[in-house]
Design a protein around this nucleic acid. Structure first.
Length: 1013
RNA sequence: GCUCGGAUGGUGGAAUUGGUAGACACGUUGGACUUAAAAUCCAAUGAACAUUGCGUUCGUGCGGGUUCAAGUCCCGCUCCGAGUACCA
């Protein structure tokens, strides 16, 4: 009986669904294992073959761990707040909640397009997700807990003394008892106050101060404003100065926004990386993003003012090399200290810098610009006056927005000094700085008072000591990491559980949360408020019941609500916790459940989340840990980034007709004439040949000549065909290959082995219905290129087609067989037959002609060897996440068992178990046929018995000077000396020795023999 | 520029601690079955030379080195990919 994948897969999937096979419960008697995928944003386009790659790997691993006896949590859900649904809503008026539901559950969109639905697409691949634990971030029962976490952040501050977050109440108690004295916190700067003063402050003032401490806080900050999207963006949502989504320009804008004080966790986020089993590349990305640098902060007094300019430097040892200071154009002191005669130029410069977008500023890096403010700073040790400049190579958002410029030791300062002809002071002994700055740390300092003759590394410490003694600064660690902007001016996101009283923010108390209100339109209001400003009816909810209407007209609530929503990463920062206890209405997760499931043991997803999602969820995890809600402070123990699957695009080459004596004809006439001509296509090979015309063989060049003649004929024919219509034109239209070729994407479903389905192509597009083709051997061969999969490139391969043709098991095995999981690779269906054959061959092992037939009794020795070799290999490979080599090993096993004509029950039954993670359907079916009532899911992974692999002899490769010459079968019981003797006695050895004496014979038992001559 | 990866047949890739390079699969070629095609099965398949068989030489991006032995380790380079970029 041939394997019928459709029937079997349907039956298995029904069985699993009906029996709740993959439903999992907390069970303290079993060890847990948590396998997680990064949950998808449910887009209308549905899945292509790249999406399930990681899910397949994680599913295989989850199934493998179940076979090993673990209680496996393997959930799935949707990151369902997001931009595309909102943008679709703006265009069509369709509520994002509706689109989102359709995209998940299937249906049709407003234009009547059929949406397959994520769930259906996932189900047909046979994943072992526990769907009873599904979460959707846009579901009120989920996001009320996202709001709850926000409230915790709002009500917390970071205590540096204890290096953890604590309740804001502790801080208030401290203020009441001691004022601001004795508090070590991560906070914004403010004036000190006593307990008495604190008590005397009115509520607004108190709230204002608390806001400086809260981990979720409102502040005026420079943000990435994207006018096209009408919203601010986080740093990781901006790439190359444009928005990551849509590629719109981004500018810097000072706005009052919610931020999360992630910088408080910078040190712990950095240290935490050491104990994680993540790739070095990924850890490095996070390290770079956090960007720790050690140095000192130093204050320079501004001459004639009381103000100090604070700078951060990693090279305090070069303090005597300071030639000038540079402030960022946005620096707050600029307008104050600029002298009257410099004012005009400085103002112009500041204004120009403000107008420049981030991208322009970046692309302008090579252009050195700046202005002298006319002001001077006093060098703290020499008392010298140094010029204060402004320049946009100094960034407002890093450090203090000001630098002490040391041209001899920093290339940027050097360039700046050269450009403005500022004299450069050299404080390095025997170092030439006439061509470039000397940034290496192996010099000796000179001309620097107390630092003289010290090597750089020592001088750094000494300099910091002097700076501290002088009271002008401290040793300091600086981070590149910024606080995370948490407001978005959008509709389709979590609303904040925040209202305003006296312009100060307050969070809703207790279990209250805010449901996303209905709006008429999803655009900003006329006053420029975010889309939520359009809502006139709001609901505060508790336990799904509406308890308050924020209806200002009727006076039930007099406080305005926050109109921003949270960013996309809010909901995804903690979803892995909700899976542990998805229906809990009292808590975001019950402590005992969080304790049982603990960290995610294996997390698989794309590397595009390296510094966004993965950093934010680490931050939230540490925060929740600080407050004692969970007992672990890192969310993801082991992480694998699956590579991208690229598409293989196909191309056709359309010839553009041209006219030789253009000047005699009007453009319009030409266009009209051309529009009447049917399109003409030439093959990829024609172009290839044309490109290398010079170096063609005689045959090829004859061929090319033939094609050229064909083209001329075709040109004449075309012209003749349309002559009637063109009538008066009488244009000398012709076709040649040169330069007049348009490369066009063609739908890959019309192409097989690079050959175009011409009839299908003509039907594909109305404009191609009369197309002409220049064929070769009766075929039209398309060109191809490897690109990202996308609808517009017509190179999207959906899993649905492949499941239909080959079955889910084949798709699963094939995606793994393609290559290492982490590697990017082009999709190519050509190899899928091999995998399909393998599964059918496996099926045939259990069948004799039409009938299921396995034999009982003792297994053949050879078969046992094959089996145990395979058990060992597959276990080892899975343990090191080498998913591709497992398929090879399984193929070898099936090939060998087929050769052995093995149909032994014991052997085959074990094969079913070890293959079931890869091919769950076929294995479930065979498992049932073998007479089992329970699902193969809970079988036991067979034990590897080494005895089956032991051989009485081994074929030694015998090499001479490292070159393998022949093999010699010898008993494994022989000692080194005996092996050497046997080898030397062999007649072939004599041949290769060729009369020479061996200098040495190396014998590695059960490995190799090497004769050195 | 910096950081991190990577480079192995016509193709995807394998070789886990230095020990038979090219497993497994695709593709290609030849053959069997068939009226024919598809499917299936069998054989060959790194390159060059030699072919009467045995075979010989070269071969893991390039140049050196360590070693009895290097795809694997060390030094220097080339190219490709990813991330990041005036971070003081």
């Amino acid at each position: 009986m041939e394997y019928n994948h459709k029937e079997v897969e349907q039956r298995c999937q029904k069985y699993w669904a009906e029996n709740g096979t993959y439903k999992v419960h907390e069970d303290v008697s079993k060890e847990k294992f948590y396998v997680l995928d990064m949950f998808p944003y449910p887009s209308g386009a549905g899945l292509h073959v790249g999406h399930p790659l990681g899910y397949i790997a994680s599913d295989i691993y989850a199934r493998y761990k179940r076979l090993e006896g673990y209680n496996v949590l393997h959930p799935m859900g949707y990151d369902s707040f997001g931009l595309p649904a909102e943008q679709y809503a703006i265009q069509t008026g369709q509520h994002p909640a509706v689109t989102t539901k359709t995209n998940i559950e299937g249906g049709t969109d407003k234009d009547g397009n059929v949406i397959p639905g994520y769930r259906k697409q996932l189900d047909q691949i046979g994943f072992s997700f526990d769907w009873s634990r599904e979460v959707r971030t846009s579901d009120p029962s989920y996001y009320k807990w996202t709001q709850w976490i926000f409230k915790q952040l709002f009500n917390s501050w970071y205590n540096k003394a204890e290096d953890k977050a604590q309740s804001i109440d502790l801080l208030i108690a401290h203020f009441e008892a001691n004022g601001s004295d004795g508090i070590k916190a991560v906070c914004d700067e403010h004036d000190a106050f006593t307990a008495a003063e604190w008590k005397a402050f009115d509520e607004k003032k108190q709230q204002e101060i608390l806001l400086y401490y809260r981990l979720a806080f409102l502040a005026d900050s420079w943000v990435n404003w994207c006018p096209a999207l009408g919203t601010v963006l986080a740093n990781d949502e901006v790439k190359d100065g444009v928005s990551e989504r849509g590629g719109h320009p981004v500018e810097q804008k000072l706005m009052r926004q919610w931020s999360l004080r992630i910088t408080a966790y910078a040190g712990r986020l950095l240290q935490g990386l050491d104990k994680l089993d993540w790739s070095d590349a990924l850890k490095d990305q996070q390290r770079n993003w956090i960007g720790k640098s050690k140095g000192a902060s130093v204050k320079f007094k501004v001459d004639g003012f009381d103000d100090m300019i604070e700078v951060f430097t990693t090279r305090p040892d070069t303090i005597f090399g300071v030639n000038f200071m540079v402030l960022a154009p946005e620096h707050e002191l600029v307008s104050k200290i600029t002298t009257a005669d410099c004012k005009e130029k400085v103002d112009a410069y500041v204004q120009a810098a403000a107008l420049k977008s981030e991208r322009d500023r970046q692309s302008d890096v090579k252009n050195i610009t700046g202005e002298f403010t006319g002001a001077y700073a006093i060098h703290p040790f020499t008392g010298d006056k140094v010029q204060i400049w402004i320049g946009d190579y100094v960034l407002a958002s890093y450090g203090t927005g000001a630098v002490m410029a040391v041209p001899c030791g920093d290339q940027r300062d050097w360039d700046f000094a050269k450009h403005f002809n500022i004299e450069i002071k050299n404080i390095f002994k025997d170092v030439d700085i006439s061509e470039a700055a000397y940034a290496e740390k192996d010099a000796v300092i000179t001309d620097s008072d107390f630092l003289n003759d010290l090597p750089v590394k020592k001088a750094i410490g000494v300099a910091i000591k002097h700076i501290m003694d002088a009271g002008i600064g401290v040793g300091k660690t600086n981070y590149r990491l910024r606080d995370a902007v948490f407001s978005r001016q959008r509709y389709w996101g979590e609303p904040f559980p925040v209202y305003y009283k006296d312009e100060m923010p307050y969070v809703l108390e207790g279990n209250y949360h805010v449901e996303l209100p209905e709006v008429d339109k999803f655009l900003p209001t006329e006053d420029g408020d975010p889309p939520l400003g359009n809502a006139d009816k709001w609901s505060w909810c508790i336990n799904k019941k509406i308890v308050k209407d924020n209806d200002q007209q009727n006076g039930t609530c007099t406080f305005p609500l926050e109109l921003n929503t949270m960013p996309g990463w809010a909901g995804s920062s903690w979803y892995f916790l909700r899976y542990m206890d998805p229906c809990n209405e009292k808590e975001f997760v019950a402590k005992d459940k969080a304790d049982y499931w603990g960290q995610v043991d294996l997390y698989i997803g794309g590397s595009e989340h390296a510094v966004g999602h993965l950093l934010y969820s680490r931050f939230w995890t540490k925060f929740l840990y600080d407050l004692g809600h969970i007992s672990f402070d890192e969310p993801f123990k082991k992480l694998i980034n699956q590579g991208m699957i690229l598409g293989r695009s196909s191309f056709v080459y359309r010839l553009i007709p041209h006219i030789n004596n253009l000047f005699s004809v009007e453009k319009e006439t030409i266009e009209k004439a051309f529009s009447l001509l049917p399109p003409v296509f030439i093959s990829y090979s024609h172009i290839e040949r044309y490109k290398k015309e010079e170096s063609l063989t005689q045959d090829e060049s004859e061929n090319l000549g033939k094609i050229k003649r064909q083209l001329v004929e075709l040109g004449e024919k075309m012209t003749a065909n349309v002559q009637e219509k063109l009538n008066d034109f009488n244009l000398p239209i012709s076709y040649t290959i040169q330069e007049y070729v348009n490369q066009l994407h063609v739908d890959i479903s019309l192409v097989q082995n690079d050959e175009l389905d011409i009839e299908g192509f003509k039907k594909w597009r109305e404009e191609y219905k009369d197309a002409e083709f220049i064929l070769e051997d009766g075929k039209y061969i398309c060109g191809h290129e490897v690109e990202k999969m996308s609808k517009s490139k017509y190179n999207v391969q959906t899993p649905d087609e492949l499941v239909d043709r080959f079955g889910a098991d084949t798709l699963r095995c094939y995606e793994m067989f393609l290559g290492p999981l982490e590697q990017s690779k082009p999709w190519d269906t050509q190899g899928i037959n091999g995998v399909s054959n393998f599964l059918r061959k496996f099926w045939r092992l259990f069948h004799n002609d039409e009938l299921f037939a396995v034999s009982d009794g003792e297994a053949d020795k050879k078969s046992l060897k094959t089996l145990h070799k395979t058990i060992k290999k597959i276990k080892e490979d899975l343990d090191r996440f080498s998913f591709n080599t497992v398929v090879s090993a399984a193929m070898i096993a099936v090939n060998e068992l087929t050769d052995q004509k093995c149909n032994n029950r014991d052997v085959l039954e074990k094969m079913v178990i070890i293959l079931s993670p890869y091919a769950p359907h076929i294995c479930e079916e065979l498992w049932a046929k073998l007479g089992h009532k329970e699902s193969v899911t809970f079988a036991q992974f067979p034990e590897f018995i080494p005895a089956h692999l032991e051989d009485s002899s081994y074929a030694y490769p015998v090499s001479f000077n490292g070159k393998m010459r022949f093999k010699l079968e010898l008993p494994t019981t022989l000692s080194k000396e005996e092996i050497e003797k046997e080898v030397m006695a062999n007649e072939q050895t004599a041949k290769y020795l060729d009369g020479k004496d061996p200098k040495k014979v190396i014998v590695v038992p059960k490995k190799i023999v090497n004769v050195v001559m």
